[in-house]
Design a protein around this nucleic acid. Structure first.
Lengths: 202, 202
DNA sequence: CGAGTTCTGCATCGATCACTACAGAACTGT
DNA sequence: ACAGTTCTGTAGTGATCGATGCAGAACTCG
């Protein structure tokens, strides 16, 4: 149970893998998988390519781990939003989280899960497919939450959870695209508010 | 006035620049600016790199011309939609056009203006900025159309044209992202229908 | 101390990147 | 036929891509 004494043999690491990974998240977030070269990645991480390969495997693995970190960090608003008591609360929290994260002054504009590898060449196919799964996972969790809302009577019996989830995720990804283009936070939040003023939309 | 007799001196071109450009559109559309290498571009265009540079300048210029062609071709639904008599008609036509184009069986999934260069490295900055302008131009034309709709009394006096345009474009870009991930045409069209069932949303 | 293990820095790998120099082919007008 | 012009194919350019080999540094254990 004593996690404070790993005591590994051999030369200890000269850097903090967690911090290096967070730097990598920012680079992938800003430049995308293909646009983030090993040179700028390792420079931002403060380590050599040798250390990066030893610690993370390769560029694909680094991206995969960066996406996990992104999901637990900047994108953690999603799982928190699912705990909202009502479907409208979930939708509101999701969109508010997207707006806040994609327009944060302390991070890159946009969403890593959208702009990280939306269209790529052959070398980026792994990252592309990974992000397709990531977005589909986000959609599915919202849809399942809305299914529960129908069961709970929170949403009317005729409501279509899949359609509603598609509505919320479409707005979310649309907001992310516009944020990537420099559209401001207030304007996007106004949009999110207006889009949910009539709920549910079907 | 006789445009049929250009009669240029020197060796004539061995390819059709229009057709080559359309092939380039498809490659940029599918792989994005950075993911579309000169090798696969010229292979798809059926010409050598020398001919490409002689005819189009460089990769940036080729992308710029490909985007123009895309705007006049697959994305021409936008300008047509602006001619619809009502704001709701405009919004409906825009979203229907996006759904159709981004899920066409005969072309790549998604939208070139979104996935062509959403996040790039240094070399893709030109393409990135160009697409930001392109999307902003699309937003602006919709907003101006909605301003006219307010003046015409088609939209209520209290309606916010900028907000409504942001709503439509966000849905459009969100649809494009989902289409890029393989979401089907029918599902996205259902979403578009539902999103416009309560109009205007504010 | 020395053996064993792991990490780091340097140099570099072949492949691919966007791009071009050059020579000859294919056309024009005279 | 000949000069002038333009396009095409070959064969590259230096730079950068992701990824490694290797020697030595830095640690633990005996």
């Amino acid at each position: 149970m004593e996690t404070r004494k790993p005591r590994p043999t051999g030369r200890p690491r000269g850097f903090d893998p967690d911090e290096a990974l967070e730097r990598a998240v920012l680079v992938f977030w800003e430049h995308g998988y293909e646009g983030a070269s090993l040179a700028i990645l390792t420079e931002a991480m403060g380590i050599s390519t040798t250390s990066m390969y030893a610690a993370f495997g390769n560029k694909d693995e680094l991206f995969r781990k960066a996406l996990e970190r992104y999901t637990e960090g900047p994108s953690a608003y999603l799982v928190r939003a699912l705990d909202e008591p009502t479907a409208l609360g979930v939708a509101t929290a999701v969109l508010a989280g997207v707006v806040r994260t994609t327009t944060s002054p302390t991070g890159p504009n946009g969403c890593l899960g959208v702009q990280g590898a939306l269209a790529t060449g052959e070398s980026g196919r792994g990252a592309h497919d990974l992000l397709v799964e990531w977005r589909d996972s986000g959609y599915s969790s919202v849809r399942e939450r809305f299914e529960r809302a129908v069961d709970d009577g929170d949403l009317p019996p005729g409501a279509d959870p899949a359609l509603l989830a598609r509505y919320v995720t479409s707005l979310a990804y649309g907001i992310a695209v516009q944020a990537a283009g420099g559209v401001g936070r207030d304007e996007l939040q106004d949009l999110a508010d207006a889009a949910l003023r009539a709920w549910p939309p079907a």
